[in-house]
Amino acid sequence: MSLRFASLGSGSKGNATLIESQQGLLLLDCGFTIKETVRRLQLLGHQPENLTAILVTHEHGDHIAGVGPLARRYNIPVYMTHGTAQHKGVAKLPSRHLINTHQSFHIADIEVTPVVVPHDAREPCQFVFRHRQKTLGVLTDLGSITPFIVQQYQQCDSLMLECNHDSRMLAMGPYPPSLKTRVGGQWGHLNNIQAANLLREIETDPLQHLVISHISEQNNTEMLARNAIVEVYGDDQPLLLAKQDQGFDWLAID
């Protein structure tokens, strides 16, 4: 089996991504209840008992709320940074692995590389996954692009990329000023233009799949996000969207 990935859902109401190889099935984040997670896993042909491990990017509720309950009920190992592990919701896990953000590691036959990102959490990171010379990058929940991030996502065969908000919609929208400042700041979330600018700096020719992720329901539209990305990426390759209510089905990296 080649490396493949799917989304249970992506957005401010809950996030979870599956990454599968021949020997491993990883769940990246879990912001849903146990019942909802099980339902969405079943839609993708899996049960919680099939999971090799759960990885956590950071401690915000839409990413971590379901991690502790799911891990405790089904005895699933959890991998996270020292900072994320301070969150009370992931206390008393059956198997906890603290990761060094400067060092790659393996879970089953998948190489996992943490990538430090600027986000308003204790010790947040995103991840790059490798299996049999194929690479999947997942990059959401960050407020700005650093040279280190550009370097780490340079050689992806598939990429899930945050297009959280349109700056004008955010400025004119219903959020209170403090939240607008947080979301639009350097430690918040990527806007459409920032996401597009990352694509200018990395090699996009190898990309088999590019997935717009973590899109705001209040401060963005699919059309605005797509238009910003297409301007850089072009429209001759498929551009997918990870939705809040249904995520997306399996995508194989050949």
Rank of each mutant, 00 (worst) to 15 (best):
I76P: 07
G173R: 14
N100R: 02
P177Y: 01
L240V: 05
T204Q: 11
Y74H: 12
V138S: 10
L198R: 00
I202L: 05
H58G: 10
N192G: 06
L8N: 04
K13H: 14
C163M: 13
V56P: 06
V116E: 14
K134C: 07
A71D: 10
A6G: 09
L43F: 10
S12L: 14
S158R: 02
D254E: 14
H60I: 09
Q154G: 03
E36P: 06
W187G: 03
L41I: 00
E222N: 05
L51A: 05
E203R: 07
R72S: 09
R122D: 10
R182W: 14
H60Y: 14
A225W: 15
L3V: 01
E36N: 10
D166L: 08
T181G: 07
D166F: 15
Y233E: 09
I212P: 05
S10P: 13
D29C: 15
D254A: 09
G185R: 14
H82A: 15
I110L: 14
P177I: 05
T146R: 08
L241F: 15
C30S: 13
P174V: 04
S10N: 13
N220C: 13
Q244Y: 00
H58P: 11
N192L: 14
H189W: 11
I145G: 09
S178W: 09
R39H: 14
Q154H: 11
Q23I: 06
A53P: 12
R40P: 09
H106A: 15
E123C: 07
D109E: 04
P94Q: 03
G9P: 07
A53T: 08
H102I: 00
R72F: 13
K13I: 09
G14F: 13
T204N: 09
Y79K: 00
R39W: 11
R132K: 11
T135I: 07
H214F: 12
L26Q: 07
G137P: 02
Q246D: 10
G234K: 06
L44E: 05
L239F: 04
G89D: 15
Y79Q: 07
L210E: 08
E123L: 05
H63D: 06
G66C: 00
L3H: 00
L28Q: 09
E111D: 12
E162N: 12
S21Y: 04
G9K: 07
E162Q: 12
P174F: 10
V90W: 03
L51G: 10
D205F: 06
E111N: 13
A65N: 10
H214D: 15
V67K: 02
I145W: 03
Q237R: 13
K92W: 14
F5P: 08
